[in-house]
Design a protein around this nucleic acid. Structure first.
Length: 280
DNA sequence: GCGATTTGACCCTA
DNA sequence: TAGGGTCAAATCGC
């Protein structure tokens, strides 16, 4: 399987954003087929318990693949939102072309050139996800801004330990168009959590504290965003969602991002777009 | 009372 | 000058 997967990695990257979406859809279809194959194989496991567990896991993989596939296909069937297009442009173009004052393009350029105070490129990951709350860190909201040509405001979070431990990690969350079956959120992660390296068992890496997890209940998401993230949830359900997220995600962040985040980068190439910088 | 969120103002960059 | 990012006082909820 590893050889098959690596073959996709080595293929020539598609140039336009629609080509990249097509390529992503092809890869997801291939992944679905592989998951089917894998399911047939795990059904041969003699031990009943292990077999059931493995089948359940493969089922989860298939479900994730299929939902990503349907998301991408619905994206392909409608004109791209300015936001997704802007990020795609940021990812693949070296010049802006026309529309210099277009807000989305301007934003893409800003994102691409986001730098620290002294001009150094900041390490940054961009993730397109249905579940922006799905990480195990404690984030504190410090701002919200309506963005030009964007349907939803952008929410600004910094690490909850940014003051105590000088942790530079930040996170921007912006909901994309809500036209798909589930809302998508563009999550931009800036800087790595230094609080985790300083305190391997605390504060960020421990699963024992409820404050380790970004709580996207009503308290930390503005009502429209929360409603979009979890439509139909009552307060008690929102609260229990926060608790269950806490219980589920207590493993290394990058591993979690790359393995379990139901994500697709805007260019459809890889799950996580990663701009390495000093300290990564 | 304390901690987290909200939101308008301000700062910085292109 | 416009727009994104951050600050900080006001507000809210526990």
């Amino acid at each position: 399987m590893s050889t098959r997967l690596s073959s996709a990695k080595n293929s020539q990257p598609p140039r336009s954003s629609s080509d990249r979406m097509d390529a992503a859809i092809q890869e997801l279809r291939r992944g679905t087929r592989l998951a089917d194959l894998l399911r047939q194989q795990v059904e041969l496991i003699p031990e009943l318990e292990r077999r059931h567990a493995a089948v359940a896991n493969v089922g989860e993989i298939s479900t994730a693949m299929e939902s990503s596939l349907s998301l991408l296909q619905s994206e392909m069937e409608r004109p791209p939102s300015p936001e997704v297009e802007a990020v795609a442009m940021a990812a693949c173009s070296s010049d802006g072309g026309t529309g210099e004052r277009n807000g989305a393009v301007a934003r893409a350029r800003r994102m691409r050139h986001r730098r620290g105070r002294h001009g150094a490129e900041l390490p940054m990951k961009e993730i397109l996800t249905e579940a922006p709350e799905n990480d195990r860190f404690h984030w504190r909201k410090y701002g919200e801004k309506n963005i030009l040509n964007a349907e939803y405001p952008r929410l600004y979070y910094k690490c909850g330990y940014s003051d105590d431990h000088k942790c530079p990690a930040k996170k921007y969350v912006q909901q994309q168009s809500n036209s798909g079956p589930t809302p998508l959120f563009m999550v931009t992660l800036i800087n790595e959590h230094t609080c985790e390296t300083l305190f391997p068992n605390d504060p960020c890496s421990s699963s024992s504290s409820a404050s380790q997890v970004l709580d996207f209940t009503k308290a930390s998401l503005s009502p429209p965003v929360m409603a979009a993230a979890a439509p139909g949830l009552k307060k008690e359900e929102e609260d229990s969602m926060s608790v269950s997220m806490h219980r589920q995600h207590s493993y290394p962040y990058d591993e979690y991002l790359s393995s379990s985040f139901p994500t697709m980068s805007p260019d459809g190439d890889h799950q996580v777009k990663f701009s390495p910088g000093p300290g990564w």
